[in-house]
Simulated scan of single mutants.
Amino acid sequence: MVTIDVSMEDFSKLVGLDYTLNSEEMDDLLAFVISEVDSDPEGPDENGHTKINIEIKTSNRPDLWSAEGIARILRGRNGLTGVPDLSASPSGFEIDVDPELIKIRPYISASVVKGLKLDDFLIKQMIQIQDKLDFSYGRKRKRTSIGIYNISMLESPIKYTVVDRSFKFQPLQFEEKITVDEIFDQHPKGIEYRQILDPHKRVPMLYDKNELVLSMPPIINSNDVGRVTEETTDILIEVTGISYEATNVALSIVTQALRDRGGK
Rank of each mutant, 00 (worst) to 15 (best):
D120V: 10
F93I: 07
A110Q: 09
G79F: 05
P99Y: 01
I127M: 13
D134P: 06
Y137N: 12
P84V: 03
V112Y: 00
G79S: 06
R77V: 02
E100S: 12
G115Y: 01
K103E: 10
D120H: 12
V83H: 07
I123N: 05
G115R: 10
D134T: 02
P99L: 05
R72A: 14
G76R: 12
F93A: 02
I95Y: 04
I104Q: 03
K117R: 13
L86A: 08
L116Y: 11
E94T: 15
E94N: 14
K124C: 14
V112W: 00
L74C: 13
D98L: 12
S136D: 08
Y107F: 08
P106I: 07
S111A: 11
R72I: 09
D131I: 00
I129F: 06
R77F: 05
G79M: 06
P90A: 09
L118M: 11
K114P: 10
L116N: 06
R77E: 01
S89C: 05
Y107K: 02
D134H: 04
L86P: 05
K124L: 15
L133S: 07
Q125D: 13
L133I: 11
R139G: 13
I127Y: 11
G138M: 00
Y107P: 04
I108Q: 11
Q125I: 10
P106Q: 11
S91F: 00
Q125W: 01
I102T: 15
M126S: 02
R105S: 13
D85I: 02
V113T: 08
G138P: 05
D131A: 02
K117L: 12
D119N: 15
K132V: 11
I127D: 14
D85K: 02
G76L: 05
Y107N: 06
F121L: 07
K117E: 15
L86K: 05
G138E: 00
